[in-house]
Design a protein around this nucleic acid. Structure first.
Lengths: 190, 190, 190, 190
DNA sequence: GATGAATGAGCTTTCATTCAT
DNA sequence: AATGAATGAAAGCTCATTCAT
């Protein structure tokens, strides 16, 4: 299914405006204006403003998942792959500042329906859950309830990227990246 | 200066509705109706809907800070006091489910102006920062940048209470509370 | 660019209501109702109630200017043309009672921003200023500061139409029209 | 009937604010605040905001009338007394800029009920009408309908003070005052 | 006389969405 | 597919006025 230029323009503008002004403060008229299309056009491609947001949310999550999944190396051990994931996630965030900001704003926001957030967590990012379970089976990761582990990982990742967003100079300094990974890993390692 | 009954009723209703429906989905008319006052009365006590939200935010943060601060014991060591704080924070959250939900929704939300969030973090919860610094001086806590430590602690606490909110049966089961504390402590301990 | 029927209806209704009830006493809802359109439609065509008023003001001034300008005759002398203008202005006022009333109410009112009133005076009615200057150059009109002359002419015209509005029977009686012109002309003739 | 300090403060503040911001843009709360009294106090002294405005209007008109009436000299002829009145009126306006501005804004405004404006014109400023009639009887003043003469005088006076308000440097320059009087007098002299 | 919390109808403006073209 | 004028419910907020103290 080829995305038309207009649909693409709407998505790009919506992403930017949702991040710059927030979902509620962004009118569909403003999105259409920014995208250079008529107000009605938006509703040809998306049944509602909410649906547009959901489309954005799932697509960006997927893009993120694809990006970091490719950093995993079957030859590496568990901790090495955890590091691979953590560093490639930080790199993706550094290279996609607007989408990273989008994550900060909406990953936990009630703007996104709870089911959708869970769906993203489970199906798109499910391979991370798998990894944790493997680590627990090998007694390399603390054997606490999987939901607790998921929430903790998610929370620490958002905290880390928030730190780097607030201090953009550190995105590419190794010591800061290492520090953030160590906090994360020490928490979950058993 | 005694807070009028009407003002109290407005605050209580606003807290409930902001949590149940979200800030934007809650109209000032609904707050007034719920509080049993006229729409004008809300604006007699608060210059705007935003100001009402800010008042709620700062007051609840302060109440939380006061509650957990009193759990600290000067005779206890650093780790013991960290545990005191963590457990009393969980207890406060368990006993104040609406306010805890309010934290989940608005602690990091752009609905609250950045400066206000920082003010809350620095002045109201500044004693936690002090504690981290003491731990770093004694080499008991990892010597990473203080902002990174703050963000990590905050992120882990929100993750933990999110876990318990999603699984309310566990609020009072010691093993779950211990698990959440261990994740937290292992992350930051050096 | 054709003015939509709805836009025209809004303008007509607004003119009538602003004159009948005053600007502040006229709600945008009442204008929309009177024009037979939805409240939103008004704001689709005009960004604000003030902008609607400004549009009306400038358009009516322009219409008035066009009407009286066409009464001038290059073959006539200065005084004859002054009389042409004065009588055609009275005629326009008699034939457009609502717009004439609008002038009475808003020509000097702070409801209209000062800059707008000056813009109307200078660009739309600038040809009158030119005429006064020609008369002064020919020593047929008193050589007082041009601003004083402008204000005096404007003031006398408003006074005259106020007189006729209060006594509508006189609009078409020549002696009254002549009297009003003589007061005007004797004031400014040198 | 002695005017209490609070009532005086309310009147002073209302005058200033009505002139600075306009009648509708001035809230009774703002008047009370500016006067240093409670909102309820205003309504102890005046039954409504309109009544406060009317009180101001009539009192200032009366003060103006008293001021210029005292400039008349029974020993002077008609034209001399007309000049006395005109110059003392300009002087009063120059010395009472706020009240003068109040005249500009409200003398013809629909904010003031028509009856009230006519009452002021007839009873407070009736001596001017008398003067015009005397002049007409002596054939010194053009014998046009008295209402036309009233309106013309009023219109010219407002035009003159508007000119001086816009060019405050000229208030005390004799040539400008003389010019404004000559325009006025030539209009009505027969 | 003075206070100021409380009122609630009313205001202007916004905006997601529709639909005839 | 694309347009943009039109919709109308709903929003946040104002404000003259009242009244118990």
């Amino acid at each position: 299914m080829k995305i038309t230029d207009k649909k693409k323009a709407i998505l790009d503008t919506a992403l930017t405006l949702f991040v710059e002004q927030g979902f509620h403060a962004t009118s569909t008229a403003a999105i259409a204006r920014g995208a250079g299309v008529a107000t009605g056009t938006l509703f040809h491609h998306f049944p509602s403003k909410e649906a547009l947001m959901e489309y954005l949310f799932l697509n960006i999550k997927q893009e993120f998942a694809d990006a970091i999944k490719s950093s995993m190396n079957p030859d590496d051990g568990l901790k090495a792959n955890a590091r691979n994931l953590w560093f490639s996630a930080l790199e993706w965030a550094a290279n996609n500042p607007v989408k990273q900001h989008f994550f900060q704003l909406y990953s936990l926001s009630p703007t996104i329906a709870t089911e959708l957030r869970e769906q993203a967590m489970n199906s798109i990012l499910g391979f991370i859950t798998d990894l944790i379970k493997q680590g627990q089976a090998k007694a390399m990761i603390a054997d606490y309830p999987i939901k607790l582990m998921q929430d903790n990982c998610h929370g620490q990742f958002l905290a880390a990227t928030r730190y780097f967003s607030d201090n953009p100079d550190y995105w590419h300094i190794d010591s800061h990246k290492q520090a953030s990974f160590k906090l994360f890993w020490h928490a979950i390692a058993s």
